[in-house]
């Protein structure tokens, strides 16, 4: 009995990860959530009192910008995820089915290479390409294709382009592992039974790769909705997301309590979307509790 209740030695290996999770997620989130219910910082200000005013401020949105910011955040996250999936899936499928080891290594390097450069640098590179005097607009105007520069930047389009570039590798790497583990013979069996290439893919490979689609999509969605640097630099005044508002509240309005409330709202809304997405995909794949 005593032996049965003793934790497995393997369980101890989880301890560092658990400690990191508690120290760098649970604890900061707890502090943030607590702060969001205070009028000030209770640790440094004895006059700080409990209040729900920060949540009321968001819910009633008398300023008329917070609901728009939440919707913009989710919209940019969803579009980035869908575009990343559309670009990443074919690439991941190709990589997973590639016979040549050298070819696989080269494509893998090409996918990973952008991740070796910082997000700020990559975003500035996109600014150089998409701005009014950037590479694309300069060429289009010089060639007489357009008379004035196209609005490629300082809007959601430019923001999504840069985010997709940054997050596609996450989608590809996640999908490659899952697709690579799907037995090719299943697809071959479907084809030998008369299914065309497309039907074999749609009815065999695609459903079996749903766990990868789910994992990759959640990863890209989570990264996109929490992105700050890229929407700030690429969005101009046309894009206002919750992370930008949170940074604004902390860095220039010096209101960490309202920033905490915005953070809690973003997390709760994201969790709801993730749960719904998980359930839909689970139902589609005929499994329960897919992830």
């Amino acid at each position: 009995m005593a032996i049965a209740s003793r934790p497995s030695p393997i369980a101890w290996l989880l301890a560092p990860a658990l400690l990191l999770f508690v120290l760098f997620f649970v604890l900061p989130f707890g502090v943030m959530a607590l702060m969001s219910f205070y009028s000030g910082n209770p640790a440094t200000n004895s006059n700080a009192f409990l209040t729900t005013r920060h949540y009321e401020r968001f819910v009633f949105d008398s300023a008329g910008i917070y609901h728009d910011a939440l919707w913009a955040t989710l919209r940019i996250g969803l579009i980035t995820t869908i575009v990343s999936l559309l670009i990443g899936y074919p690439l991941a499928h190709w990589m997973a089915r590639m016979q040549s080891r050298l070819g696989h290594a080269l494509v893998l390097m090409a996918v990973i290479a952008p991740m070796l450069t910082g997000i700020v640098v990559r975003t500035f590179a996109w600014m150089t390409i998409l701005q009014d005097k950037g590479v694309i607009n300069t060429l289009l105007v010089d060639w007489g294709i357009v008379s004035k520069p196209l609005p490629l930047m300082y809007n959601e389009f430019g923001t999504v382009v840069a985010l997709v570039h940054i997050y596609v590798p996450f989608m590809v790497l996640t999908l490659t592992g899952v697709i690579g583990r799907i037995d090719e013979r299943l697809e071959q069996a479907a084809r030998s039974l008369g299914a065309g290439r497309l039907r074999a893919f749609v009815e065999v490979t695609l459903p079996l790769s749903l766990p990868g689609i789910l994992a990759g999509s959640l990863l890209v969605f989570a990264l996109s909705i929490s992105a700050y640097v890229t929407p700030s630099l690429m969005g101009g005044t046309d894009v206002l997301t919750l992370p930008m508002l949170i940074a604004q509240q902390v860095g220039t309005s010096f209101n960490p309590n309202f920033a905490g409330a915005l953070g809690v709202v973003l997390l709760l809304v994201s969790l709801l979307i993730v749960i719904a997405y998980n359930r839909i995909l689970a139902r589609l794949s005929g499994e329960q509790g897919l992830a």
């Binding site: 910082n41 640790a43 440094t44 902390v250 860095g251 220039t252 010096f254 960490p256």
Partner: peptide, 12 residues
């Protein structure tokens, strides 16, 4: 930068 949030978080 920014310094003010850090100062806010430290004891007076």
């Amino acid at each position: 930068f920014p310094y003010v949030p850090k100062l806010q978080a430290s004891p007076k």
